[in-house]
Computed example of a mutant assay.
Amino acid sequence: MKKKLGLMVTAMLTAGTLLAGCGTSDEGKTSGGDKKDFKVAMVTDTGGVDDKSFNQSAWEGLQKFGKENNLEKDKGFKYLQSTAQSDYKPNLNSLIRQKYDVVFGIGFLMGADVETVAKQQPDAKLAIVDMVVKGDNVANITFSEHEGSFLVGLVAGMQSKTNKVGFVGGVNSELIKKFENGFKAGVLTANPDAEVLVQYAEDFNKAEKGQQIANTFYQQGADVIYHAAGGTGMGVFTEAKNRKKNGEDVWVIGVDRDQHEEGMPENVTLTSMVKRVDQAVYEVSEQAMNGKFPGGKIVEFGLKEDGVGIAPTQDNVDKDALKSVEDYKKKIIGGEVKVPKTDAEFEEFKKNLK
């Protein structure tokens, strides 16, 4: 039986994240009332449902929930794909009009639209992944991406032969900064002499831009690149595979899902930082169906809850690196190591490295 993730639900206390009506009597109600009539849907961001990453993971979770509860595809569970940011609000409203009990917005880029729609449709139940918005009818799903990124950073730092690694980000934002700073902290913890190259594509759906950045990094001597760039990251794999065919010893660290297959047949995936968006979507859907929708709350998935970590495919990871991962996982969960999320926290972390 598959282990379920634990949920850490946090009330929002600061003015910037205070959600109206948190803990009110509305919590625990479902709009459908009858499980057999329960319907759940999601709206992708512009990366699309087959991005091999974030959106695909969310859809896999929704499909699993639908199948296990005997829901019919496109009637009991479905997705709407967004090709531009202007599609977000119409797609969300369309699913609400179709009487879906919970509508997920996948990705922080949808935050403003989810908040607007939640205000306009107070009887609707929405969930946003990777963002916190105001509204007692919105469940906020977040992850400790910095913790998982630290672990793959350890692997990169230990296995780099050139002492130079790269990070390719999608959109420069508070969210992706968590990936970057956690990764850099892990790299330097394992290898204080390493250099980390960083560049943002400013897009999650431009594989050609990802390939261009990867080409530059590899030319500069990096032999491991970690991407947190959705579909843009597919270009990093393309560049690595092309170079591997020519005999270069280069690697990619995937993100969100186990991206081992994206590195084949050239076998360029060193490991991946898995982020269980699939299980988060599944569990919030289940909560809602059972009358426990976490509206107005943050539902956080971290290392402790098995919400982030390194991928199960570990064939290319050295045994010493895996041991270091396990050691630091315990230290992070135990509070002995605090992984930085922001640039300021990273600078402070770096000062304390011995």
Rank of each mutant, 00 (worst) to 15 (best):
K2W: 11
K3Y: 10
K4T: 09
V9S: 13
T10H: 13
T10Y: 14
T10Q: 14
M12Y: 04
G16Y: 06
L18Q: 10
G21A: 06
G21W: 04
G21M: 02
C22M: 10
G33Y: 01
K39G: 00
A41N: 00
A41H: 05
M42D: 04
T44H: 01
S53E: 04
N55G: 07
Q56L: 04
S57V: 03
W59A: 11
G66W: 10
K67P: 02
K75E: 14
Q81C: 12
A84T: 15
S86Q: 15
K89D: 02
L92V: 04
N93L: 12
S94F: 11
S94T: 15
I96A: 08
R97Y: 13
K99T: 02
K99G: 07
G111M: 00
A112V: 11
E115N: 10
A118L: 01
A127T: 01
V129A: 10
G135S: 06
V138F: 01
G148T: 07
V152L: 02
V152W: 06
L154M: 15
A156D: 10
M158Q: 09
M158L: 11
K164V: 03
K164H: 07
S173W: 05
E174M: 14
K177S: 13
F179Y: 13
F183S: 08
V198R: 10
V198L: 15
Y218M: 09
G231A: 12
G233I: 00
E239S: 14
N246S: 15
W251Q: 06
Q259G: 14
P265M: 15
V268W: 11
T269W: 06
L270S: 05
T271Q: 05
T271C: 06
K275W: 08
D278P: 12
M289T: 08
F293C: 04
K297F: 06
K297I: 03
V299F: 00
E300M: 07
E300C: 00
F301D: 00
K304T: 11
K304S: 13
V308R: 03
V308E: 07
I310N: 02
V317A: 07
L322V: 01
Y328C: 08
I332H: 06
V337K: 03
V339A: 01
K341M: 10
L353M: 09
L353P: 09
